[in-house]
Design a protein around this nucleic acid. Structure first.
Lengths: 165, 165
DNA sequence: CGCAGTTGATTTCATTTACAACGACTCCCC
DNA sequence: GGGGAGTCGTTGTAAATGAAATCAACTGCG
């Protein structure tokens, strides 16, 4: 139905399939699904959870707010992801001695073990993706996304940078 | 906190900010938000709704299934978007004379009017996005996304191609 | 014909998500 | 040192989402 006759321009010359924002949305979705599947199967983690784990693992000790900045998730999502990670014993949450409102997140020993598995898997999946493109295409994609991000951010106001998954 | 000292590699050399799937997700989100805002303000349409409208407007008469294929939305989303468009008088739904199970969607006069405004807005927003990149970067982005899409599709099985918004 | 299997579309339900309000606390200026 | 303004993190609530169940109608084969 899609692959048969029609594939050129319609009466108004508008073709959704060739529309970049649409392609971007689909690509992002497919990649997210791929990640979600892998992380769910191998570690029982959702994407917000592994992002928190990755960032805390990298920096050692972080406040939920900082985690939010590094992962581009809002504080609600961080809070909930952190809560389930704490419940599972992968993260420890303690009060911030410097600020009674704040909390500090760090890996437990168990969390550290998981983290050691999580990062390689991320790299592996990324490598799998990269394998579909030439090296030049891959770097071009990277650069274009960076520029696009900055540009859109400039347009809509820098405020609510956010990632859905 | 993000823009200060830290920006190189962590102890494990993993930097979420430089991780392509992450960038892809954020870019897609920002762009989607931009679209959602514009379409909501100017036409009171959600993204699924304008996609349906765009596709039906282009092809004239379509079944919900076909709409789903063209827009990469699952049938539930199409069904709901179509229902609200019908309720608003932008779309008409009639039984398919060839197949009692099927329905046919087409624009009403009012829907046609809206469609005439919707497509230029899409083009305008796309142009705004493109303005942030050089022409070469833009085409590279397009090509890379196409390849990435095909590649991921090949990996995870061709089945549930889907767009979130 | 009759019935088993399949497909088109909608509906239902459990889960996920965003948005808003909240309590606890800090900051700062009077 | 007291009080308004702002921030940190959590919780509650309402909307959006996808998976599976449902219903109707077509197809094919005995």
């Amino acid at each position: 139905m899609k692959s048969t006759a029609e594939s050129g321009e319609g009466p108004d010359g508008f073709n959704l399939e060739e529309f970049l924002p649409y392609r971007l949305s689909i690509a992002s979705n497919r990649v997210s699904r791929l990640f979600a599947k892998q992380y769910s199967e191998q570690f029982g983690l959702t994407i917000p959870e592994w992002r928190v784990l990755a960032v805390v693992g990298r920096f050692g000790t972080l406040s939920p707010t900082s985690v939010g900045q590094y992962t581009a998730m809002d504080k609600v999502k961080v809070s909930r992801a952190a809560a389930t990670l704490v419940a599972r014993g992968l993260l420890k949450q303690s009060p911030d001695p410097k600020d009674g409102r704040g909390r500090l997140l760090r890996l437990t020993r168990k969390g550290s073990t998981t983290h050691n598995g999580v990062v390689p898997l991320a790299r592996e999946i990324e490598a799998t993706l990269a394998a579909g493109l030439t090296r030049a295409e891959w770097t071009a994609l990277n650069k274009a996304l960076i520029k696009l991000n900055e540009h859109v951010m400039a347009i809509e106001g820098p405020d609510p940078g956010e990632a859905t998954d």
